[in-house]
């Protein structure tokens, strides 16, 4: 992930790369977020112009989906599943413990910008619940100690 502030040219190149696709808006938003960790506000007028949409329409699409961020997340994103299968195996207590230890709520980022914790509704690991994801690492039968340990090891 590139963390520098993108120039208009950088953003336009990412937009243009998706233009051959039918229905390119979601792929564009994904490409920008993958490159910069969020979709900077400066991208919206460029996307609108290229797709012949209003900025309001682009904002409307972006804000509809949980995945897209207006600002970068913490350096480590922890996703804890809140769905039923995980609840049946104690996901509620797990998330309570993780959030309390970090001193944040759902969607919050620690003051040092290290960790963001988000709710996720199903990772497809329902037969080894509760499930969590740190970055792109999946954890089955997760417990608070395991998540703590993974985060301790991370800068």
């Amino acid at each position: 992930m590139r963390h520098s502030h993108p120039t208009s040219e950088d953003l336009q190149a990412l937009i243009d790369a998706q233009m051959p696709l039918e229905g390119p808006l979601l792929p564009i938003l994904h490409a920008i977020q993958e490159a910069y960790g969020h979709v900077p506000e400066a991208a919206l007028p460029l996307i609108a112009e290229t797709l012949n949409l209003t900025q309001a329409e682009v904002h409307g699409v972006m804000s509809f989906y949980h995945d897209f961020r207006k600002a970068p997340a913490g350096r480590h994103v922890v996703k804890i599943c809140r769905a039923e299968a995980c609840q049946s195996m104690g996901a509620g207590a797990l998330s309570d413990a993780v959030l309390e230890k970090l001193g944040i709520g759902w969607g919050g980022t620690t003051a040092d910008g290290r960790v963001t914790v988000e709710a996720v509704y199903c990772l497809g690991l329902c037969a080894c619940a509760p499930a969590a994801m740190i970055g792109d690492r999946l954890i089955g039968r997760a417990d608070a100690a395991r998540i703590d340990a993974e985060l301790e090891g991370a800068a």
Binding site: E22, G23, L26, H30, V61, F64, Y65, D67
Partner: peptide, 27 residues
């Protein structure tokens, strides 16, 4: 081709999925 969703549960509903595929809000 594969199109990646963006975390909206309702997009599992077929018409909402189609809107999302077209690059719209998944209503």
């Amino acid at each position: 081709e594969v199109r990646v969703g963006a975390g909206a549960y309702v997009c599992g509903e077929e018409t909402s999925l189609l809107n999302s595929l077209e690059g719209k809000r998944g209503v």
